[in-house]
Design a protein around this nucleic acid. Structure first.
Lengths: 137, 137
DNA sequence: TATTATTCCTACTTGTATAGTAGGAATGGT
DNA sequence: ACCATTCCTACTATACAAGTAGGAATAATA
């Protein structure tokens, strides 16, 4: 389970937005999440194009979530920054049974990341037990 | 869950050895698993140094498993080829709750790959149901 | 309308890892 | 002596990740 810096930053930015109650500047996001300033711009742009956040230009502009934090899963963010994987090269027939295992792992990962929302993670910051319950249902 | 070509090949090679009942040549392993010939050498060398396989030089030399296929987990092979991850960079404090999630995913992955052995995978080639039972105990 | 702060966009640079290849030395059977 | 094999170091080429550069577009404010 590879997590690129880009993805980590994107999730951080989304969590920052989830915790804010009004539009915030890229400057502030970058600062609070320790994201290199211009790289942050770059990532926010990508998130906006994907429809996860919205923005306003000019002084007193900023960014905010396009949907409530409870409606955005971690997987939604990750899919954007990691892009869609280029369909693994043709499998050596002899090792085919492994494919089933990779599939199982991928499914589990996908299920978990799809059911945890930004709101869950924000809540887990204050209620440390919140996330622990996620896996059970 | 990233699987490099190297790891995929290494697992293929190990499965090939698990299915053989006597020492086999790198030539044959490379052929049956569609591994580039010299890259295969390279990988077998790494597996031998890690103690997973043994070898014999000269004509009629070859490779074989160092332990029974039932005693070698997929994770044993993967740890060798993927090396040990270089301890993720310091975490932006603001996104700390994510660390817990990455940990959970990694643990699950590790548990699954540690309990499936080469023998299990070989068996699943003939009994397609064999692998499906693994996750339950 | 000029100024200024912000988002927006393309393209570039640089570092690192992956996927292999090259050339040959060492070994062991015949 | 010969030959097939494993063994070993080092090299190359490509792709991707991480981040930077330069500036255009937009919008509030004076």
């Amino acid at each position: 389970m590879r997590i690129s810096a880009r993805t980590q930053y994107a999730l951080g930015a989304m969590l920052a937005l989830a915790g804010a109650d009004r539009p915030v500047h890229a400057e502030w996001i970058a600062g609070s999440q320790e994201i290199p300033r211009r790289f942050c711009d770059n990532i926010l742009l990508q998130l906006r194009r994907a429809g996860l956040i919205r923005s306003q230009r000019g002084p007193d502009g900023g960014y905010w979530l396009a949907r409530p934090a409870g409606d955005i899963a971690l997987a939604d963010v990750i899919r954007v920054t990691e892009g869609v994987e280029p369909a693994a090269r043709p499998f050596p027939a002899a090792a085919a049974p492994l494919a089933e295992i990779w599939d199982r792992l991928r499914s589990h990962e996908d299920a978990l990341l799809s059911e945890i929302t930004l709101a869950d993670v924000v809540a887990s910051g204050t209620h440390p037990s919140a996330l622990a319950q996620q896996e059970t249902h």
